[in-house]
Design a protein around this nucleic acid. Structure first.
Lengths: 236, 236, 236, 236
DNA sequence: CATGAATGAGTCTTCATTCAT
DNA sequence: CATGAATGAAGACTCATTCAT
């Protein structure tokens, strides 16, 4: 599956300093990654960068963007606050990349799950999407949960660069529902947009209460959610 | 219906300063209220207090707690930042009361709706609860939406005083579902807690996308949600 | 004589905060100043503001803009650094006003001196201008000397708003020389712009070495400079 | 003509680090110079050093000392900031050498011009000095213009080491004027110190406005300045 | 020789809070 | 009741400097 293109300003190499350094480092890393395996061949610089981003994601998720200080991020990444600026030009740039990674992660996870399913029922496909979304959100990525949790409270100018990707993700779900409806697996009178909102809302809200215990817990939650969505609570 | 008891520290009259002043002001207000009529007899003090709270709620809802400054709140309330301290001892005290009012408001709205329904089916009762929750959240109260939106990101010590009321509200919903299940209107194998999470999650998430246009829009949304929850998306 | 219009952005009341507060205070002060005498009727706020500006001017003059810290300015004004932001929105805004006051001060001083002279020779007028310029620069205003000293090293965007007034002042001098030349008091082959540069340069450079001891010292310096410019060093 | 002795601490080999390394490098260079020819045999090290100094001079001149960052200097010299420390122990050391080279450059230029003139009138000698000073300032050396422009705003401890050379240069000019006066080419009542201040001031101030277009422009400016100083603006 | 990466002291700035008026 | 003015602690960010590689 193709990687989803980033839509963030943190990708234009137009600024000096951290941005410039970054693009160089990244291109090298890419080269290496194709030659060698995965994590170990990383530059020191990239490891720090990743660590900063991971720390930021966790803190953003827990406390929100504005309540999180660079010192907290630095402490969690075991460096000093000033050092962050070797890797990023501003707190907002960190946010940008956290948001971007977060959304790309769910999107890819969901897409992969659905595409690898092959020939299955639409309900099954949607079930897989639900599972993948929950796994990304609750299990594999602080980036995704950070994104989901803080996006709504950010000022306009910080949300703006992420709209295209968000819209694309929404449309991907819409398509899943449209196909299912066309195939008669969803009632014909069901409007897609409110349905998507309802489903995604129920899924996203899990961050507020679900505490991960074991892998099965998420899968179980996904199964239950699928049943609920397709069959409702009615006696059968 | 009984008013729901507040559980916040802002009610203990133990501190000096604004709290003390406040109680004085209130007693004066009581005197007046016996002399004069009802609404207009609100003291200037209390009107300011309310205005501050309303302003704070709106801003908290939009931007979160830590991104909201007292100067923004003051500006919206058309006073100066320093004046807030006549009414409140700290920003946290404002938060406390915003959270408290917000939750009490949904709780009361839902309770009222359900209790006034009289003898109706359990599905109807739950439908009314859904509608009331959505109305409180999307239509009548910035307090409620502020509460729902920011609670999860607050530090422990700010959440703590609100837990009892939150738990009470959760239990109220649980009871609705338990009763419905006992009556056979909900499948027997449906566990109540995840169900409540699912339902409340889907409802709460609406703050993230629903833009109020007219009263009917909320009612329509409520109706749709009820159907979805009870019948699912399956072809009947 | 009419006050010279300020050309700085610090005058638009478009921003909130310090800018807004300022314009209010100033208008009140103006009213008072017409009723009463001069300094005493000043608001506390304005006194602080002035003190900050004066402190800043002295430090800018001595150390330059970028080497001067807000803490130094605050210390000299006997307040804390943060308090500066009650009166100004940024360090640059302070600079703006220092520059503006500085140039307006020389300009007004020179204009006044020349206009009050009445019917005198052109050489005398220019002599008075020289004297006034030197007095403003060396005796009465740290604002003027700060302006002269630091302007050349400022980045473009900080110089820009002050260009119109600077040009006007240059043209004022040019006119003095043109008139004198037309009247035959200056050689006909003498080009005005280089002449003005030469004269103003010689005057401005005095900041680099002249240490004020008494009023007469400046007047003596002015007299000497006038002689030099008109007669040169030649044996008569 | 003898080179003017440097008076800066950057010459004492007492500190470890860059200074030590430097002297080593220099001795190597000397060896090479005996083997090979002249200019090309400069070590890479020395070329970098020079480039750093030149870059620094330009930036100091434009922006002042404290507004210039080592990263800017490094960028202009096409190296990285850290590398500067191979050649210099601190930013102040760079400043020291820039100042030193700047003053030595004018001084030598002026001295050379005067000494090579042979038997000419005092006015001519002073005219040549004026021309040489302007050429050094405006045409040949960013070091000189940097020195002239920033010296006045530096803190005491940075100015101190350069005082002796400055005094020497001032005395050199004084001597030119004294000789001319003794010879009757300058009015007897003209005091030398203020005269020198006036002349040097007018010359130095040209940095603030003169933009070099062609060699002749500077010579023309010099000629004009000489005339002005000797004859004044009076009708002859 | 040069760089990449990091550091810590210090900068400007913000903001909750205080308090005299 | 409300404000104007100030404070101090903390925040984001900068920069000279260090040092292993």
């Amino acid at each position: 599956m193709r990687a989803i293109r980033s839509s963030t300003r943190s990708r234009d190499g137009s600024r000096p300093g951290a941005a410039a350094r970054r693009s160089k480092a990244t291109s090298v890393a890419n080269k290496r990654n194709t030659e060698a395996e995965d994590a170990p061949a990383q530059l020191k610089s990239e490891r720090s960068r990743d660590l900063i981003l991971k720390s930021a994601a966790q803190l953003f998720r827990r406390q929100g963007f504005s309540a999180t200080t660079l010192r907290q991020i630095a402490a969690k990444a075991k460096i000093k606050a000033g050092s962050i600026y070797y890797h990023f030009d501003s707190k907002e740039e960190i946010l940008d990349e956290v948001l971007d990674r977060g959304l790309r992660h769910v999107f890819e996870t969901v897409k992969n799950a659905v595409e690898q399913a092959g020939k299955v029922s639409h309900r099954r496909r949607i079930g897989l999407a639900i599972e993948a979304h929950l796994v990304a959100l609750l299990e594999t990525s602080d980036f995704t949960s950070a994104n989901i949790r803080i996006y709504g409270q950010l000022p306009e100018h910080l949300k703006k660069p992420h709209r295209p990707l968000r819209r694309a993700y929404a449309e991907y779900w819409d398509q899943l529902f449209i196909n299912a409806r066309r195939a008669g697996e969803i009632r014909a009178d069901m409007e897609v947009v409110p349905l998507r909102m309802f489903v995604i809302g129920a899924l996203n809200w899990t961050i507020e209460w679900f505490r991960l215990e074991n892998r099965d817990a998420v899968l179980e939650l996904a199964r239950r959610t699928e049943t609920l969505i397709f069959e409702g609570v009615n006696k059968p």
